[in-house]
Design a protein around this nucleic acid. Structure first.
Length: 280
DNA sequence: CTTACGGCCTGGGTGC
DNA sequence: TGCACCCAGGCCGTAA
């Protein structure tokens, strides 16, 4: 499931091979996840990739028009199972390949997405703000005080806030659970009832978990692959995620799974004390 | 405005 | 062999 570390890994891989390349053809398969597919197929050929960036969980391919003038941005969200992998054109296409961008060096950037929960749109720079403007700060660039400020007055459950991209951008279920375990905070705690030192600890935990995950190329549970088609390694360092019934690495208590904020949430019942009134 | 919750999208895996 | 069901993440609508 691509969250911030996985998208960052993919963006770095693509940044090593895409900038300067001209798109010579765009072919679409199923397009129900593409915003205005006809326009996208018409406008992409001739564009040159200037830069590859990550914004939260979004990938941004910053394009230039053929004559070098500023162009639109290809905005890609990988959803749960989206993959964006450059390959030589003679390599057979994987199943569920729905977008193929042919480049001027004989390679193809291929978007495959088993579930098609991803999204793709070609957006003029002036309109980017309307899509990305509501997202919160990047956790890796966020000052501790700002993190505390965004959570301290909120009565929602802390995990719901970590997952809400308006609070901060880039966390998903894996890294929310891993961060809360590291900070010893139960996912169902009300953010407003956490002490300042707990919020500061959570901020440090989020940053430490994300940084370590980026260093290991992200987490591969089932489908995630980087831009070279390789899995990540951080799943080997998961402490609680997808580890129900296994011992907590700190205290050996059995990891439990409950539903919090509508999501499976893994936590240690001893290290992460449940709030009063939270059943199970 | 804030929060909680249910439903929807899709298809692989699981269990009967 | 077949098939119903669960689950995943993000988003949206609704209700309080």
């Amino acid at each position: 499931m691509p969250e911030l570390p996985e998208v960052e890994t993919i963006a770095r891989g693509l940044a090593a091979c895409l900038p300067g390349r001209r798109i010579v053809a765009a072919r679409l398969g199923k397009t129900d996840f593409v915003d205005n597919p006809e326009e996208l197929a018409r406008a992409l050929p001739g564009c040159i990739v200037r830069r590859v960036e990550r914004y939260g969980k979004f990938l941004l391919l910053r394009l230039a028009a053929g004559n070098g003038a500023a162009g639109p941005t290809l905005l890609i969200h990988l959803g749960m199972t989206g993959q964006l992998i450059p390959q030589r054109a003679d390599v057979p296409r994987a199943p569920h390949t729905h977008v193929v961008l042919s480049l001027d060096d004989g390679t193809e950037v291929r978007y495959t997405d088993l579930r098609r929960f991803g999204r793709m749109a070609l957006v003029a720079d002036g309109k980017l703000h309307s899509i990305l403007g509501s997202l919160g700060p990047d956790p890796l660039q966020m000052a501790p005080g700002e993190f505390v400020q965004r959570l301290a007055a909120r009565r929602a459950m802390v995990k719901a806030l970590l997952l809400d991209q308006r609070t901060l951008r880039g966390l998903g279920n894996i890294y929310a659970d891993e961060s809360l375990w590291r900070a010893r905070i139960h996912p169902a705690r009300q953010a407003a009832r956490l002490r300042r030192d707990q919020l500061l600890r959570l901020h440090r935990s989020v940053r430490a978990v994300l940084s370590a995950a980026i260093r290991l190329g992200g987490s591969s549970i089932a489908n995630y692959r980087n831009a070279q088609g390789e899995p990540g390694l951080f799943q080997l360092n998961h402490r609680v995620y997808h580890r129900e019934g296994r011992p907590c690495p700190r205290c050996r208590a059995r990891i439990r799974r409950v539903i919090v904020a509508g999501r499976s949430s893994y936590f240690c019942p001893l290290c992460q004390r449940r709030p009063k009134g939270f059943k199970r």
